[in-house]
Design a protein around this nucleic acid. Sequence first.
DNA 1: AATACAGCTGCAACTATTCGCACGAGGTCG
DNA 2: CGACCTCGTGCGAATAGTTGCAGCTGTATT
Lengths: 149, 149
Amino acid sequence: MEVFTDLVEQLRRRGERLTPQRRLVLEILQNSEQHLSAEAIARAIVLRYPNLQIDQATIYRTLKWLHQHDLVSETSLGGNHMVYSLLSAHHNHHHLVCDQCHTVIEVEPELLVPVAAALQERYGFQARLAHISLFGTCAACRLQDEGEV
Amino acid sequence: MEVFTDLVEQLRRRGERLTPQRRLVLEILQNSEQHLSAEAIARAIVLRYPNLQIDQATIYRTLKWLHQHDLVSETSLGGNHMVYSLLSAHHNHHHLVCDQCHTVIEVEPELLVPVAAALQERYGFQARLAHISLFGTCAACRLQDEGEV
DNA sequence: AATACAGCTGCAACTATTCGCACGAGGTCG
DNA sequence: CGACCTCGTGCGAATAGTTGCAGCTGTATT
Ligand SMILES: [Mn+2]
Ligand SMILES: [Mn+2]
Ligand SMILES: [Zn+2]
Ligand SMILES: [Zn+2]
């Protein structure tokens, strides 16, 4: 939890509140190296603190809040649920998701830096382009498609 | 409906079927200049053909199918539903969506061409980057945020 | 025109996520 | 420390979108 002391202080100065529920979600994300779904986070909380309870709506609201404040990424990998992870070095990449075979390719974050810069310059728009997904067709599936035409 | 004769033929050659339901959805999208939600499409169908019926699941499946075949875009504008439109000149742009004030800025499609090219070249990945949204904070909201820190 | 079968469709149940509301609890000020 | 106000939480209901399944239909073949 100590890693976030400064971030938490920053939020507090903005008038944001740090509740036990928010600490809990933050702690679970901190201790995971992977993307987690909201449901996985709920399960992890119950597993670690069997006597605590936290509502699913609160988990979603907390994740949205963390995302809004650039502490957490909210990413679709093509499945029917979002996945969440701390914005840390471990998750410093983007995803190419194949619509057909659902393969996920991780790509270097630098790829979108020029786009972000252009948006900032031309529109003053600060794009949230960390740990996102781009969808399409992977090389293998495209070859297969061509063969069928 | 005639605009799509060749596309439809292409799909048919691939073994895809053109059912009345699919024609219907295509027709509604064709006659709209705007983005439409699945529900709006359903309403438009009922309005035009009051005696016909079409299941919502079929509409969703049809839209996904059209999207898969690059005839239709499926886009989030930050609301709680997706919007759909034909991939035509009228919708030849991307969107910058402000997470805070929900403003949508339309930007030139060329912005993402270099990204698509890089993905194609380095990974053989054919990204589906037509009429998509990028999320973040608009200029006005960012100024306001800075003032509050 | 009849056959055959893969691929659609309708239906109803199901999932992930959101929302309204009444109550509870962080943070601030004195 | 206690009051106050604002914001967060739990709860239950609502929403958008998905899925399994059994029956139907577009399309190719004859
Ligand atoms: Mn990742
Ligand atoms: Mn648009
Ligand atoms: Zn693939
Ligand atoms: Zn804004």
